[in-house]
Design a binder for these strands. Sequence first.
DNA 1: TGGCACTTAGG
DNA 2: CTAAGTGCC
Length: 475
Amino acid sequence: MPTAVIWFRDDLRLRDHPALQAAARAGFAPLPVYIHAPHEDGGWAPGATSNAWRHRSLAALDASLRQRGSRLHVFAGDSLATLQAIAAVTGAGAVYWSRRHEPAAARRDEAVRRALRAQRLRADAWNASLLFEPWQLETRAGDPFRVFTPFWNAARRAWSPQAPYPAPDALPEFDRLPGETALDALGLAPDIPWDASFWAHWTPGEAGADAALQAFIEHGLHDYRDGRDRPDRPLTSRLSPHLHFGEIAPWRIVDAVAHAGPVEERAAFVRELAWREFGVHVLHHFPQTPDANFNPRFDDFPWAAPDPALLAAWQRGRTGVPIVDAGLREMRATGWMHNRVRMVVASFLTKHLRLHWLHGARWFWDHLVDADLANNTLGWQWVAGTGVDAAPYFRIFNPVLQARKFDPAGEYIARWVPELRGLPAKARHAPWEVPSGSRPTGLYPARPIVDLAEGRASALEALKRIRVPVADPLG
DNA sequence: TGGCACTTAGG
DNA sequence: CTAAGTGCC
């Protein structure tokens, strides 16, 4: 039986795996391979938190392969050279993989495909991560979408998610290959166990993804529309890291929720999946956006000179604004932050502190288990106002109002900012506003590092400097 | 997927 | 005085 190398990357599962399925259909014996090559990810090599998850997810994939008689063959080095060496040693006739859409990875994949085909190997890639490939939807004018709602409308018109399909029962075994290394030797897992607190919250791997999906359907979906905005309540799906690493296919998620819960609730959830698709669409069509403003008008925006003390206060959750600090501390403790709070902390960084959104994007990149170039870029540019789907006004979140609205009892704040636990619930949103007797004592900042009204005003003032002057009709 | 100033209704 | 609605950035 001829061999097909299955080149695993961000598709760490065995069900719903089109490359694996294609190999079986064509009569190939699949050889599962992982190549550690972060130097091929351009300026956005995965951060330490992402690596910690990947280590466990790869271990889960390997265990799952072993249950079926196979295992994961692990390498480190240049992807193309490694694949060529594997093909030469095994006499493989094909290399199959799942597409990636990050610009550097997509370019690398294309170079790999050409080189392999030039030596008469079959080299093919499939969609394993999306409901719609980024080139599949376009405006009536044939352009990429720049606004979410029309994108979502087009997606609904074209809606035809595929059905889930099972993993193969048994897989063939291969001998150890020259150059193979151990998963533990890749250095993905932290040397110092700073991630120890993460794993009470997460189970990386295909089984963990399935458990998260079932838990969401049981506990979160029924109240998703309003509940998803509440960081104090566990109603979000928490599927983002599983989706990022391809531990579950989006079409399997769509299938699972299709008949669960009230129709309005599941529609709201599928809409959130579509935001993820929109992020990939935008990244594919505007590949500069991880590093540059989508809207070039903001290239002249007067960002504040990065003050290391202010940036560090934001990073460590010591800004003195409770909802902001809670979010950044949640991320450091669990590798994840509630989406509503992501918007609030991002707005605070880019508007009140007026620091460039890339400072925040980089910090998220290194500290989120679901760090994803498409979603991270979309989210930061959206909040900063530099990106797609821009509002006709300059959106500045008021972190106190956001906290009162979405964490009304201050439970989320109390969970992550223990200095404020002794305060009455109402005082936790803005402790500097309450009588001094009920203010936090000890180490928590007495006041925010920037006055909220002044921060807002300075952001609006900065915006005026890049506003195109309106032509005076009277000359 | 916002906030704020201003207005009006109603306690 | 608060809640809710409106117009505007």
